[in-house]
Simulated scan of single mutants.
Amino acid sequence: MHAPASPPVIPSDLLLLAYRNGIFPMSDGRDDPEVFWVEPKMRAILPLDGLHVSRSLAKKIRKDHFQVTCNAAFDRVIEECARPRIDHPDSWISARIMASYRALHDEGHAHSIECWRAGDEAPELVGGLYGVQFGGVFCGESMFSRTDDASKVALAWLVGLLKRGGSVLLDCQFMTEHLGSLGAVEIPQPRYVALLEDAAGVGAASLPAAFGALDEAAAGLDSSPGKLILQSLTQTS
């Protein structure tokens, strides 16, 4: 008896075409082989100059409370984001969607930010996020946290790196109370699509390139990367 065939990944060119038109895929459950395409009537975005950073969060960023990396554990981040949660016992991130974004990551179009905490034997992954990037756009897909403020630090690093790299639009898909507390705003889909069209043509640096440039700058200035990220967050366009 043969094992059932895994559902085919969503072709990367189809995924990117959807994102460029303001559409993204979801699933009804982790084991669901089907996907459906979503075009919300209202869209959540996080203005890059509008991230709300509390004093306690700023201190954690400045002091490098977590070790932050980019694309160091993409597979693990997406797996953590897909795990059941108390408020979401089932995940819209199905096995097919996970495989599709892994392929997109392998092709250089999907990226992750990871937060690590020192462990007894090795650093422990305690937070992170992932999303799709093209032009001056980053479409955030999901984030997770296993300890206080880990996902917020990951988001702060994402915003700081996007600003440093010249990106102009951070898509959050759906508004939540948590995102609203961090500065996200909701706009009609037609307005989002107009912003998307303009931002997609911006020649911004990729997230890994912006991360590498930050590391070089921190070393050259004998500064902590967190301090440079915090400076980026306080600088307005």
Results as ranks from 00 to 15, higher is better:
Val35Lys: 05
Lys60Arg: 15
Phe138Leu: 09
Phe24Leu: 06
Lys63His: 13
Cys139Phe: 06
His105Lys: 07
Val53Gly: 04
Trp116His: 07
Val137Ile: 12
Thr147Met: 10
Arg146Ala: 15
Ala73Glu: 05
Val153Ala: 07
Lys63Ser: 15
Gly128Arg: 10
Leu17Ser: 14
Leu48Gln: 02
Ile45Val: 14
Ala82Leu: 09
Phe144Ile: 13
His65Ser: 12
Tyr19Thr: 05
Ala95Asp: 13
Val132Gly: 00
Asp90Thr: 13
Trp37Val: 12
Leu57Pro: 11
Met26Ala: 08
Pro33Asp: 07
Glu114Leu: 01
Ala99Glu: 14
His111Arg: 03
Gly160Tyr: 04
Ala154Lys: 11
Leu51Arg: 07
Glu114Ser: 01
His52Cys: 12
Trp157His: 13
Ala150Thr: 08
Ser142Trp: 06
Gly127Cys: 01
Arg55Pro: 10
Leu57Ser: 05
Lys60Phe: 07
Lys152Cys: 03
Val137Thr: 05
Ser100Gln: 08
Gly50Asp: 02
Ala72Lys: 12
Asp75Asn: 15
Ala58Cys: 04
Leu46Met: 07
Asp31Val: 01
Leu162Phe: 08
Ala154Val: 02
Glu79His: 09
His65Asn: 06
Arg96Ile: 07
Val159Asp: 04
Ala58Lys: 09
Met26Cys: 09
Ala118Lys: 09
Arg76Ser: 15
Met42Asp: 07
Ser145Pro: 10
Ala118Cys: 03
Leu48Asp: 01
Val77His: 00
Gly108Asn: 02
Pro33Ala: 03
Glu124Gly: 07
His88Asn: 13
Phe74Leu: 10
Trp116Leu: 10
Pro25Lys: 06
Lys41Leu: 10
Asp49Arg: 11
His105Met: 01
Val77Ile: 14
Val159Lys: 04
His52Tyr: 12
Gly136Phe: 07
Asn71Arg: 05
Glu121Ala: 11
Leu162Glu: 00
Gly22Asp: 00
Gly131Cys: 09
Ile78His: 01
